[in-house]
Computed example of a mutant assay.
Amino acid sequence: MRHNNNIELTKEKRDDMISVIKDYFLKERDEKIGDLAAGLILEFIIEKLAPEFYNQGVYDSYKFMENNIEDLLSIQK
């Protein structure tokens, strides 16, 4: 499934995430929410929060490569 922010989820992954959100609300807040409410929360997370996690992952990958690029030269013959 494609969203405006280019984060793709399969239907199965989306359904799994909705289930996790519903379980969280039930266990942590003692609130039973439905698929629609959990889906809206998921959309909010994808739209507003996920880009920050993605950007942090990109930055962490960059720093890892930057710090380890010299190791790549050590395998020259």
Rank of each mutant, 00 (worst) to 15 (best):
G34A: 03
I46D: 04
D23Y: 10
K32N: 13
Y24M: 10
K22E: 02
F44Q: 11
K48H: 08
K22Y: 01
R29C: 09
M17F: 11
F25T: 04
K27I: 07
K22W: 01
K48P: 00
I33L: 10
F44W: 07
I21T: 00
D35A: 12
L40R: 15
L26M: 10
M17P: 00
K27E: 12
A37C: 08
I45Q: 09
R29I: 04
I18T: 05
L42F: 11
I18M: 05
L36S: 14
D35L: 08
S19W: 01
E47Y: 04
G39H: 02
K27M: 07
E28S: 13
Y24F: 14
S19A: 08
A37Y: 08
A37W: 04
A38H: 04
G34L: 03
A38V: 07
I46R: 04
E47A: 06
R29N: 12
D30N: 11
L40V: 15
D30G: 03
K48T: 08
E31W: 07
D35E: 14
E47K: 07
S19N: 13
G39F: 01
D35F: 10
I45N: 05
R29Y: 10
E43R: 11
A38W: 03
E47C: 02
E28R: 10
G39L: 01
E31K: 14
D35M: 09
G34I: 02
V20R: 12
G34F: 01
D35Y: 09
L42T: 11
A37D: 12
I45A: 15
F25Q: 08
A37T: 15
E43Q: 14
L36A: 14
K22S: 00
E47R: 05
E47L: 06
D23T: 14
E47S: 08
G39C: 04
R29D: 08
I41G: 00
G34S: 04
E28I: 05
S19C: 05
K27Y: 06
A37E: 15
K32D: 12
I45L: 15
D23V: 10
S19I: 01
A37N: 10
K22T: 02
I33Y: 10
K32A: 10
I46P: 03
V20T: 06
D23E: 14
I18E: 00
K32F: 06
D23L: 13
D30Q: 06
F44S: 13
E28N: 13
Y24D: 12
K27T: 10
L26E: 11
K22M: 11
A38N: 05
I33P: 09
I46F: 05
M17I: 04
K22C: 01
L42Y: 09
M17T: 00
I33W: 09
L40W: 07
E43F: 06
F25L: 07
I46E: 06
F25D: 03
S19K: 07
I33H: 08
D35G: 09
L26T: 06
L42Q: 12
A37V: 15
L40I: 15
L26G: 01
A37M: 13
E43Y: 06
L40P: 06
I46C: 07
L36K: 15
I18N: 02
I33K: 11
I18C: 04
A38I: 05
L42G: 12
Y24S: 11
I18H: 02
A38F: 05
R29F: 08
V20G: 01
E47W: 00
E31T: 11
I21K: 00
D30V: 01
D30T: 03
Y24N: 09
F44A: 12
L40K: 15
D23R: 14
E31G: 04
I21D: 00
I46S: 07
R29M: 08
K22H: 02
